[in-house]
Design a protein around this nucleic acid. Structure first.
Lengths: 294, 294
DNA sequence: GGTACATATGCTCAATTTGAGTATATGTAC
DNA sequence: GTACATATACTCAAATTGAGCATATGTACC
């Protein structure tokens, strides 16, 4: 075994947020970077350190926080290692801090299946991939699985895998052999976009079987707001009545006793999350209660 | 922001394996440690580095490998940070390497709900916890949720959370204020047992909705073997006929054309995993097809 | 050959859960 | 009070699941 290596360590944060029907991320440097900073010495857990540090930097109070992934790049300059520990944190959308946020889908347009323009882009991507895969059956299958082609159906949780595939296929700016024909979302510095893709995959998986969506909502909310948050994150439409049934039957929420004050239409009841429901709610078994494709 | 901190970095590996009906882990130092070593310099990805390093050390070829969690302990000696990046890797049970393995349930006896002795232990743990929680409603609820008391049911995926709760309650040796009344599984050095608990939780979650179980099985296997691997990991019995139905209906496997040669009983067909099935199989929606509690 | 055993495999059926609607209620703006 | 927009209630067939019984096919031993 080789000698112990000293290296630098950094924390990277993906701060997520939902504004009405858009999932947002806090970015720096004109949308090209995620907040990050060196790991300091001291007796705190990484998680606590991150929270404190983000609060100092942005004034934002973090909700659910979770570690994503640790990358270890080799620095070209001195061949030393740079360890990047990435975290995802959810911010309640009621918090009125003005922070520079962008839609996650600015970076992954193909992930928003509610947007018809983006779906046209997806068509072009798929064509390119078909060409890229050529006669390689393994890659053909991979493309089919990841992009929901014929035998398969679209799986929103595979956002990270899709990004990695596009990277390999040279379809994103960060790729080594980028081929610039297709407008494939905003690029970011370093590995940041990959970290963001990791966060998207993770949060999409987690909203299904935990109560993390509620960390993105204000204290009280309507069922429509809840549904919109889910739709924003999952990037697809859901069946309204069935969604309500799912939520109410499981007693995940309780009435807050007040009503919404909408611009139009009948005011909706306000609800609040029932902490007794705990972490394990099935806000959608494995499949989301989708709306039928038009 | 403080100055950049240099720190040491280590890799830790949880190597998992299933022997008939027991989930095993490769350990060192008489079961007290997990294989670990310093992160070396060099241009490889962490994952590749880990694989190569484990192969060198143990001669074992790794199947599915995945990052678990990164811990950052503060060293007492010089106040520097030690970053530990932990990985879980699955080993096909056909590999005939003789490696020193222990049952995972030696470390977490309460997690094996197939074992009646262990369930007696669980009774005692729950009593202790009730006493520990006292009148603190939050902790009472937490205990109830994690240990499947009245309103809740047992959730095998919460192994990590349970370990953390026991740690806080001073019921495991590693805890700061350990109270040694209850024989609560073998202890390990440093954070290793926590890393192992992370792996257990992770693998239990993953076998439900991905094909990782197959990485633990030999090339061809019977449906019973598949079921036993699931049962070993989940720590509970499953309904045989319904399990078969689930697997066969989804076409996750194909007949290998040969038969098992058992000691007793009718020989079972051998199957092999169908790679076309891809990663996303629902080997159990959210709930496992359990056998009714006698 | 036949009996005991042990496991594999096939099949049934009621109870739930899901998918996709239709129908009705209750607010605002004009 | 009419148009609109959204909320909420309820229905019903299809699919999935939970639990079980029945039958098939092997070995070991008399």
């Amino acid at each position: 075994m080789k000698q112990t290596a000293f290296c630098r360590a950094e924390l990277v944060a993906v701060l997520l947020n939902v504004r009405k029907d858009t999932p947002c991320v806090l970015t720096l440097e004109n949308g090209q970077a995620l907040p990050s900073g060196p790991l300091t010495m001291g007796g705190h857990s990484l998680q606590k350190e991150l929270c404190r540090w983000v609060e100092q930097q942005t004034g934002v109070v973090l909700g659910h926080t979770e570690q994503l992934y640790t990358f270890a790049d080799t620095q070209v300059a001195d061949k030393s290692r740079l360890v990047r520990i990435s975290y995802m944190a959810l911010i309640s959308s009621h918090s009125d801090q003005t922070i520079a946020e962008r839609s996650i889908y600015d970076y992954f347009p193909w992930e928003d299946r509610r947007n018809t323009e983006a779906q046209a882009l997806l068509q072009r991507i798929v064509l390119w991939l078909k060409n890229w895969a050529g006669k390689n059956v393994v890659q053909q299958r991979r493309c089919a699985r990841l992009f929901g082609l014929p035998p398969h159906s679209w799986n929103d949780e595979l956002a990270l895998d899709r990004y990695e595939l596009l990277w390999e296929a040279g379809l994103v700016h960060e790729a080594k052999h980028f081929e610039g024909q297709i407008q494939s979302g905003l690029p970011m510095q370093a590995d940041f976009r990959r970290v963001l893709a990791t966060a998207l995959s993770r949060v999409r998986a987690k909203i299904r079987y935990t109560s993390v969506v509620f960390d993105l909502l204000p204290e009280t909310f309507t069922l429509l707001q809840l549904q919109q948050a889910m739709e924003a994150l999952a990037g697809c439409w859901m069946h309204k009545q069935n969604f309500r049934r799912l939520v109410l039957q499981q007693k995940l929420v309780e009435e807050a006793g007040a009503f919404d004050t909408p611009q139009q239409g009948r005011p909706a009841k306000l609800y609040r999350f029932r902490p007794e429901a705990g972490q394990n709610c099935y806000l959608a078994g494995a499949k989301l209660p989708l709306t039928p494709l038009l």
